[in-house]
Design a protein around this nucleic acid. Structure first.
Lengths: 340, 340
DNA sequence: TTGTAAGCGTTATCAA
DNA sequence: TTGATAACGCTTACAA
């Protein structure tokens, strides 16, 4: 297939006998252009198959109609929904999105961010990304609008979209408490995640409030992966006095915990109750049937994108924060502890 | 945060007292530039925080270092891996990727494709997209390189990356045959999917070769969704003489079938064997434990991207096709049929 | 080896 | 209301 030469606005001008600028104005829908000229131009543009070069336009207007989305890994079942949510509004706004997988690696994230700025994106959505280190801040401070999702910086006031971690964790703990659990394990997420920290604090606070065991050994540090879940499961079940229930840091965590339990002949929920956090697509399957804290990920994606578009349009004013409610979906992995 | 003015090559030139072109040449690493000039330039660029505008560069070079990736929906557990694979090589090549979700809708796909061309992407990867209709062909024929994945057009020779559907389905059927199944249901994918067609043909061929029941009622038409799986499950189990095993068109299909079976008090694999196609991340979980045909999705993504980069670099010659082997992963959803 | 100038395809400014 | 012209920031002949 021969590489076809682009049809430019020049050719439309030549074809119609009008000036470049008139064609541009007509196409842009400027109201002072005669209805007749506009018709001629539109007809010619269509006939010649003219489509404006987004590249030239971006250079001239200093506006690319493109957004960058940074995420650890789209292939992770828990993250793609955010991206989809962003795309939902990008389409409405006739924007395209650059997808950037960072694998949680700061260097990689920085590379992507700088590349996005080189490409003059109109804005960026950072989903669970690093947002506090000097290097990252320096790039963020270049002035391109951005919105943080799920992870925010404590030292900076940024536009932010997150989940109500406090009520989510509190609700989960109360549910377990009501069932009779008093010794509850907790998997904490990355230390530099604000959400992970909030959840940990809530866990501690509620443990005190509800009179649960406050053994520090009940907190297992890791990330949101299945592998961490596996480790956590083995750790908890290997304790001298294992917890009767565990709160995973994510659904993948919890699935790992269940897998580890099953390998150790420990039955969920008979011997151990498990709660997840996320509510991935498959969590509701009969075979999985995971009790979990539901996160409105796609909605959060759209909210973040809208907030971003707002900034891009010049919306000034204080940074805003939008916190989405969570809700506990009680399924089959929680029940009262076995009486010893 | 103030929108900072871009540092341009002009300023680097002014700062160093050199000409624009010299700066450009130095930065581009042209060998005839003195080591000393280069050092001066690099130092100044770094000090001023200069980064070349990818937009201006794209306009001038007619090369954007961006690729478009079209997919039905990244949020679908079975598709994100392809995207990740493409990104793996995009990064190596210092390319960015535009992510486009089409939801399998041709109009949406067309909109995305045209937008990608407006943006002058260097190439596109079409994953299970429409590729035969005149409208789509017209856009494809504009000359921007592209690679088809999983779905190809019969009337056109295009660069293609796919799976060995024939041996995959054949292996699955042989496995079921060996277990003793003779009446095997089959969920067929979209009519305009070449892979779906290939699989159906293989199913029919093998059914004949192995002497299986060839009741046309054993073929259920649908798409790759969980919902189709539910429908298919209800349909098959509602038959006067239900199959003893079913081959889903995808893992999501198969999970739907299992869900439907469970609702009808039919136990898998005791009363019904089920095989999937995909091997999604969670297929291997103890609770799911799905016997399935493994697809090398991430590898296919990287292969497609490499093939594309090759074309972009001007690699002429006949269209190539790369077919990846599949392999049956036998887990817990298949076993001999109950003796009646 | 470095400098000058043209041009990529738009939009914006200003004059006609 | 339309038209001429100057940017936008870069690369690349070609000249010096």
């Amino acid at each position: 297939m021969k590489r076809q030469k682009r049809v430019t606005i020049r050719e439309v001008a030549a074809d119609t006998g009008l000036a470049l600028s008139t064609v541009s104005n007509a196409l842009a829908g400027k109201e002072y252009v005669t209805e007749e000229t506009r018709k001629i131009v539109n007809e010619a543009a269509l006939r010649l198959g003219y489509r404006a070069s987004a590249v030239a336009r971006a250079l001239r207007m200093n506006r690319s109609f493109a957004l960058g989305v940074l995420i650890a890994d789209v292939a992770n079942p828990s993250s793609a929904d955010f991206v989809r949510g962003v795309e939902d509004v990008a389409i409405e706004e006739k924007c395209s999105i650059f997808l950037c997988n960072t694998d949680g690696d700061e260097e990689r994230q920085l590379w992507h961010m700088r590349t996005l700025l080189d490409r003059q994106v109109d804005g960026m959505v950072l989903i669970s990304q690093h947002c506090s280190s000097p290097a990252v801040r320096q790039v963020l401070d270049k002035g391109t609008p951005f919105v943080l999702v799920q992870r925010r910086s404590e030292d900076h006031a940024d536009d932010y979209v997150g989940s109500d971690n406090v009520s989510g964790i509190a609700e989960a703990l109360r549910h377990l408490h009501e069932l009779g659990h008093r010794r509850i394990g907790f998997v904490r997420g990355p230390a530099d995640s604000s959400s992970a920290r909030e959840r940990l604090e809530t866990y501690r606070g509620e443990a005190r409030a509800l009179g649960l065991d406050r053994d520090p050994g009940l907190v297992f540090a890791g990330d949101y992966t299945f592998a961490t879940g596996l480790d956590a499961g083995r750790y908890f079940l290997g304790m001298e006095r294992p917890p009767t229930a565990v709160l995973g840091g994510s659904d993948m965590n919890s699935l790992g915990i269940i897998e580890a339990a099953s390998a150790l002949k420990c039955k969920v929920p008979r011997d151990l109750s498990v709660i997840g956090l996320d509510d991935i697509t498959l969590a509701g399957l009969k075979q999985i049937n995971l009790t979990t804290i539901h996160l409105r990920k796609r909605e959060m994606g759209t909210a973040a994108a809208r907030m971003l578009m707002n900034r891009i349009r010049g919306g000034a004013g204080a940074p805003s924060a939008e916190i989405f409610p969570t809700n506990l979906v009680v399924r089959g992995t929680t029940r009262p502890p076995r009486t010893p």
